[in-house]
């Protein structure tokens, strides 16, 4: 096994109220179709505009949920670096994201804890917005190292308590 790189972020550097760097992205039809096919979602409302408009009553095709999860994962691990390990994510879908939208992912730390096994956890309240309207929320729980020689990915069995 290779020598592990130093973590980019450890728990002691994080405090409740910290804001993650925003991630803005201009959504195109390609974004929507690529995301749907990458997640093996063949349903027509994610690639066929006529179907989306006529059958779903939306103005265009729209991002599917599994690909939004992938966007949230990228947003979170851009911040934690590769040592960050997702424990739990809760999504609430409030509106759709269409080609032409500029989506912005934002996040605020709402919890910093160490569990009984010594694992460091950060709670983050993440939102995906378009023009200030929240389209999806994600309550995330992410493990980060408690020290430079810690690695949450080595945890298994009862030493990994993502709930």
């Amino acid at each position: 096994m290779s020598a592990a790189p130093d973590p980019e972020l450890i728990l002691s550097q994080i405090a409740v109220g910290d804001r993650l760097p925003d991630l803005g992205y201009d959504v195109t039809a390609t974004t929507v179709v690529l995301g749907a096919l990458a997640s093996r979602d063949w349903r027509p409302m994610h690639h066929d505009k006529d179907f989306a408009v006529e059958r779903n009553g939306t103005r265009d095709i729209f991002l599917n949920t599994p690909n939004q999860a992938a966007w949230f994962e990228r947003f979170l691990t851009d911040w934690t670096g590769p040592h960050g390990r997702l424990g739990r994510m809760t999504f609430r879908m409030l509106g759709s994201v269409f080609p032409g939208d500029t989506m912005v992912l934002s996040g605020v730390v709402d919890e910093v804890t160490v569990d009984a096994t010594g694992c460091g956890w950060v709670g983050i309240d993440v939102t995906l917005s378009v023009d200030g309207d929240v389209k999806t929320t994600c309550d995330a729980r992410v493990a980060v190292p408690v020290a430079t020689d810690d690695n949450p990915w080595t945890r298994t069995g009862t030493r990994w308590q993502p709930s």
Binding site: S2, A4, T77, P82, H83
Partner: peptide, 21 residues
């Protein structure tokens, strides 16, 4: 999938980092 969201996390791209972590 990584490409669809422009996720450059080296854990998924860099074999040395994947081996280490």
């Amino acid at each position: 999938t990584l490409s669809s969201v422009e996720n450059g996390n080296p854990l998924f791209w860099d074999e040395d980092i994947a081996d280490a972590l």
